[in-house]
Design a protein around this nucleic acid. Structure first.
Length: 493
RNA sequence: GCGGGCGUAAUUCAGGGGCAGAAUGCCAGCUUCCCAAGCUGGACGUCGCCGGUUCGAAUCCGGUCGCCCGCUCCA
């Protein structure tokens, strides 16, 4: 399976379209179609339910994307990647242009017939005005023109650009949590340890976007900032280190719970030289994507860096009063930071299967039922029989009150099943002549329908009146095998 | 950003200065009592975009946008 296959399926079946496609497409932006938005919403809903609603130590937040520009100074983002950079075409090293000629350098001057002489540090050549053009490291590569490097999207708050305050589209949702730490702490009367969760868009001017929705410039994050008391010890370990481990396991288990194969997940410890400026320890959860192992989620121990920075820049006290020790502490924070789009890609890639059935290829998405965009498809076995069509539409309406349910009668039953397989619909309900009865033969209907399961293609025959209860089981976590034995099998041919 | 490859129907692709093609899919009808069945009919294209060469460009040239691969980068 390769990425092109997934991209093609996503477009053909309404999961993901390239942004602004009719204008030739916009690099690194993608739109989620009718089925894509369902899958994406399901990912976010399950994350929120499992990590916020089901836990007593978690609360949620939805901060605005635009924030005071000082936030990004405090966070350290403004000081990174805002400099003019040049690259060496030969050895590919990258330098800050304004730092390049601080030291003296050898110059071959075009204004002096290419004679070579040393230019003192800090100045361009007095004859031609050029700055250093050869790589200071390898000594032979030509340098590119300086380019402004800013990975944050700069924007203007206010209608008149010159008067407006400059700020940035947030490059991570985390800062919205840190600046609201005090608000949440006070309004919710929380005790350490506790976490604040947020799902939202973030924007990064990535140098190299690509690999479909893996690296994009507009992305959606699911982030938790889990605050712990650095003075506490849990199970013989400092609280931050204990909770870091807890969250690594919790998050890995979450991906497993919704169907990602264990062999396609691994943990990767960041090396000391690779740690971010705020991090004491970072562990990535990596997934085996079509293009190789890559980061799905990063779980960092951000220590007290962010709260301290915001306290310093805002002048506000961002501390927690430790009643027991009668002292103020700055909490440490554990940050599980997941990408919605990357999760989407991982769940999709992991679910994709091509099987051979009766000599024909069957494409299916073995999505977990809770992730599947469509839960149930109601299909008439024959569409020329009005009673069958009418009954099927009634059943769809009833089931649609609780689950995403579709009706389709535009092909023969085999094709209808395959269509649903390809978008990952876990269950099909088929209405046949027996269901509604045959007036010509004087046969009454039994008001029973077939339920067909996606992965096994097994079928059972069940009373219509029991459909809701059965799907409550099947879509509420009960395995097919526990339901199938209570009902008679339906022959397939 | 550099190097290479590629943009033709919804999808996968063929065509390579002279009528725009195939398969699959899609739509309608017939048929069919459960796994891409069959038959008949149908719709679908500014050949990515802009410009140039030419009597004539999907085809050649230049630019541009997008995608893929490699390198590089990646809070």
């Amino acid at each position: 399976m390769n990425m092109d296959t997934l991209v093609s399926l996503c477009k053909r079946r309404g999961f993901v379209f390239q942004s602004s496609e009719i204008y030739g497409g916009t690099g690194s932006c993608w739109d989620y179609g009718p089925l894509g938005v369902e899958l994406k919403n399901n990912i976010k809903r399950l994350w929120w339910r499992d990590h916020v609603q089901l836990r007593a130590d978690m609360v949620g937040l939805d901060a605005s994307i635009l924030m005071h520009s000082a936030v990004w100074k405090a966070s350290g983002h403004v000081d990174h990647f805002t400099d003019p950079m040049v690259d060496c075409r030969a050895c590919q090293r990258r330098f800050r242009a304004d730092k390049l000629d601080e030291a003296p350098w050898i110059h071959s001057c075009p204004a002096k017939k290419d004679t070579k002489f040393e230019v003192p540090g800090g100045e361009p050549c007095v004859h031609c005005g050029n700055r250093r053009t050869l790589c200071p490291e390898c000594g032979k590569g030509q340098l590119t023109e300086p380019r402004q490097f800013n990975l944050m999207f700069k924007t203007f708050m206010g209608p008149v650009e010159e008067d407006a305050a400059v700020t940035y589209l947030r490059p991570e949702t985390a800062q919205g949590i840190f600046v609201n730490f005090e608000n949440v702490l006070q309004s919710m009367r929380l005790k350490l340890p506790f976490g604040i969760a947020q799902i939202g868009k973030a924007f990064r001017n990535e140098i190299t976007p690509g690999n479909f929705i893996f690296r994009v410039r507009e992305l959606e994050q699911m982030e938790i900032e889990y605050f712990v008391n650095p003075l506490d010890t849990v199970a013989g370990r400092p609280a931050d280190e204990y909770w870091h481990e807890q969250w690594i396991e919790e998050r890995r288990a979450w991906y497993r719970r919704y169907g990602i194969a264990a062999g396609n997940l691994r943990l990767r410890e960041h090396g000391k030289d690779e740690l971010s400026h705020y991090s004491k320890r970072t562990v990535d959860i990596e997934y085996r994507f079509p293009m190789g192992w890559s980061e799905l989620e990063g779980i960092a121990n951000r220590t007290d860096f962010d709260l301290k920075q915001h306290a310093k820049f805002s002048g506000k006290s961002l501390t927690y009063f430790d009643e027991e020790r009668r002292t103020h502490v700055v909490p440490y924070v554990i940050e599980p930071s997941a990408g919605v789009d990357r999760s989407f890609l991982a769940f999709l890639a992991d679910a994709y299967r091509e099987e051979e059935v009766r000599g024909e290829k069957r494409v299916l998405l073995r999505l977990h039922p809770e992730l599947a965009p469509v839960k149930i498809a109601v299909l008439p076995l024959l569409k020329k029989r009005d009673e069958i069509v009418a009954r099927a539409k009634e059943i769809r309406t009833e089931l649609a009150r609780r689950w995403v349910t579709v009706y389709d009668d535009t092909a023969a039953i085999g094709r209808l099943y395959r269509r649903q397989d390809e978008v990952g619909t876990p269950f099909c309900v088929t209405v046949d002549v027996q269901t509604v009865g045959d007036p010509e033969k004087g046969e009454p209907g039994d008001d029973r329908v077939t339920i067909r399961e996606r992965d096994s293609m097994e079928q059972i025959r069940v009373p219509v009146a029991e459909l809701v209860r059965i799907f409550q089981e099947l879509l509420g976590g009960q395995p097919w095998s526990s339901v199938v034995q209570r009902y008679p099998a339906q022959d397939r041919a």
